[in-house]
Simulated assay, not measured.
Amino acid sequence: MSKYDEIDFEKIALQMQEQVEKDPNNVKLRNELAIVFMETNEYEEAFFQLQAAAEIKPSVQTLYNLAYFYFTEGKPIIEATSNTKETRSFEEEAEEESISSTWEIADEEAFDLVEGLLKNKPVHYFPYNVMGEMYIKKEKYEEAINVLKEGIHLTPSLENLNNLGLCYYKKGMLPEAAECFHKAHPLRSCNNYSLFPLLSYGICLAQLGRGLEARAVAKELLLLSEKDEEALEAEIAEIYYILGDYREFVNIYSKLDWDFYSEEFLPTYFYSLWKLSKTKEIEELASKIIQRKEKEMKEVIQDPDEEEDFKAEYEEATREEIAFIKNAVREVYKGKAPIIDYKPELETRCYLYGCFRHTNSNPNYFSI
């Protein structure tokens, strides 16, 4: 249990609200109150505090935090349920009991705010990291590369180095991608223990034909995955598959509990078994999984408590899964090697200025 789990944030929120009423122009206090509201899952209240702070004193801190909230949470759509036509401020609306809200994506609002901030060359890396994520989300990898490099120049982090590697990987620049993933892994911290940068590094090494290094990374990953209880064995095994080491690939896959793995993992396993002349194992595993799926499908269809639409959708999806497995076996017997379409993971963390849970720094509240 974290030390923060023992804090009464609801009590703190009430105290801070009283302070804000006495000092409404204190944007630092509003920012802290917004973070406390997020701790109590009162995201609408948090949004209004961040919005108010940005209106009272537009600065790198206030505008960025509002942008980050837009990007990660979206924005509330306020709907008045009363008949009054008076014009109210957003704070008055937030306090009215007759107001309800739904949420919508606000990526463009976030993008516009951060883009404007970056024109002034902020000296902290958070805005650059977040803009990099925004560009990656839009699949604008060249733009992401440029902005991530600026963030790395200020402060290298697991996230910006990994995401730069992701961009290079998407552009087919494997040596550059490998270097970034390699540099990202040692920067694991309490805010991000991810093993995916190291996994991506191993995949790149394998694709570059650097077998000895790739195997060393795979062994390290298996040890770390077990230690951290990450359960990445199936993904790590892909390094061996790319290298054509089917024996080691099968050694790892044979220990997986297939009740918890998608059928999409099966083609490479079937092919590796076939390369090792273990067709009996292919037939047995395919038959076992198909029988389990047919049994589960029958149970759902016969369940009187399930909706008919759900039954129809479940049956259709299950029959597609079974057809996929049967086709995978046929393709393997033709000698067709499945290709691994590896997708590097985007890395992120909390980038909210002043977040005490993640010990994030807070820049000065000077106006832009």
Rank of each mutant, 00 (worst) to 15 (best):
V147W: 00
K140T: 04
E150L: 12
P156D: 12
S157F: 02
N162Y: 07
L166S: 08
G151R: 04
K170R: 15
C167V: 03
Y168W: 11
L166V: 12
N163Q: 08
G172Q: 08
Y168L: 09
Y141V: 02
P156L: 14
Y141R: 03
L164E: 03
N163K: 05
S157M: 03
Y169T: 01
P175Q: 10
E143S: 13
K138W: 08
Y141F: 15
N146K: 10
Y168I: 04
A144Y: 08
G151W: 02
K149R: 13
P156A: 11
E150M: 13
L164T: 02
P175D: 10
L164H: 00
G165K: 00
K149D: 13
E150I: 14
N162L: 07
N160D: 03
T155Y: 05
Y168C: 04
K149Q: 15
K170Q: 15
K140D: 11
K137T: 14
N146T: 13
I152D: 01
K149P: 00
L161A: 01
G165S: 02
E142Q: 14
K171W: 01
E159P: 04
E143I: 06
L161Q: 03
L166Y: 13
A144V: 03
P156K: 04
H153Q: 13
L154N: 10
Y169I: 04
E159G: 03
K140V: 06
K171P: 03
P156W: 08
G165V: 00
M173N: 11
K137V: 01
L154H: 04
K140A: 10
L166Q: 05
E143T: 00
K171L: 15
T155D: 07
L161G: 00
G172I: 13
L174W: 08
E143A: 11
T155C: 06
N163T: 08
K137N: 14
G172R: 07
